[in-house]
C-alpha cells in the first residue's frame, strides 16, 4: 500500500527535476557575476557624462539580464535535458503565489529606496554584504531541504564564508559586489560540473 509520505514524494519529484542538470545554477551564477561585475565597473568609471550614461543604462541591463537568463535556461534545457531525460512543463503557481511574490519584491524595493532617500544607506554600508550573504546562505539551505538538493549546502557554505569575509574586511558597498561575483563564480563552477556529470550519465537518445 502506498503511504501519504510516498505520495508527497511524488509531488516533489518534478521540483527536484529542475536541478537535475546543473543548468539553473550555471545561468544563475553567470547572472550574479554580471551584476556584481557591472557594479564594480560602474564604480571604477570616473564621474562625468560616461558614468551618467552607464548608470542610466544600468537598470535596463539588470532587467534584461533577468529576462535573458530565463530564456537561456529554457533554451539550454531544450538542447540538453529534454532530449535525454524528458520534458516537463510546471503548473501555474496561481494568483496568490504571484501576488505574494510581487508584494515581496515591491516591499524590498521600497525598503532599499527608503534607506537611500533618508540617507541611512551609509549606516548599513558595512552590514549589507554580510547580511545579504547570510540571507542567501539560509535561502540555499531552505532550497536544499525543500528540493532534496544537497549540493545547495555547498553554495550555502560559500555564501556564509563570503559574508564572514565581507564583515571582517569591512569592504562597504564594494563587498556586496564582490560577494555576488564570487558566489556567482562558485554557482557557475558547480553548475558546469553538474552539467558535465549529467551529460556523461545520460547520453542523448531519441524521443518516444
Amino acid at each position: 500500500m502506498t503511504t501519504p509520505d510516498q505520495l508527497r514524494d511524488l509531488d516533489s519529484r518534478p521540483k527536484r527535476y529542475w536541478n537535475v542538470d546543473g543548468i539553473p545554477e550555471l545561468v544563475m551564477g553567470l547572472v550574479w557575476i554580471l551584476w556584481g561585475g557591472a557594479f564594480l565597473v560602474g564604480g571604477a568609471i570616473p564621474p562625468g557624462s560616461a558614468a551618467n550614461l552607464y548608470w542610466m543604462a544600468f537598470p535596463a541591463v539588470l532587467v534584461l539580464s533577468g529576462v535573458a537568463s530565463a530564456w537561456l535556461v529554457r533554451r539550454l534545457k531544450e538542447r540538453f535535458t529534454y532530449p535525454r531525460t524528458g520534458y516537463i512543463e510546471y503548473r501555474d503557481p496561481g494568483p496568490l503565489v504571484r501576488a505574494l511574490t510581487a508584494l515581496i519584491v515591491v516591499l524590498t524595493a521600497a525598503g532599499v529606496a527608503a534607506l537611500i532617500v533618508t540617507g541611512r544607506a551609509a549606516g548599513v554600508e558595512h552590514t549589507a554584504a554580510p547580511g545579504i550573504g547570510v540571507i542567501l546562505s539560509l535561502a540555499f539551505v531552505v532550497a536544499s531541504i525543500r528540493q532534496k538538493a544537497p549540493h545547495f549546502l555547498a553554495l550555502a557554505g560559500v555564501a556564509l564564508a563570503l559574508a564572514a569575509a565581507a564583515a571582517a574586511l569591512k569592504l562597504g558597498w564594494t563587498g556586496m559586489n564582490w560577494l555576488f561575483v564570487w558566489l556567482g563564480a562558485a554557482a557557475t563552477l558547480m553548475g558546469a560540473w553538474r552539467l558535465r556529470r549529467y551529460l556523461r550519465k545520460h547520453p542523448a537518445e531519441a524521443q518516444a
Partner: peptide, 18 residues
Amino acid sequence: VGLLNGVKEADFVWLMHE
C-alpha cells in the same frame, strides 16, 4: 498519476525515467 499530478504536462521520456 502521482507524477503527472505535479506538472502541467510532461513527455513520455520523462515519465519513463521517473
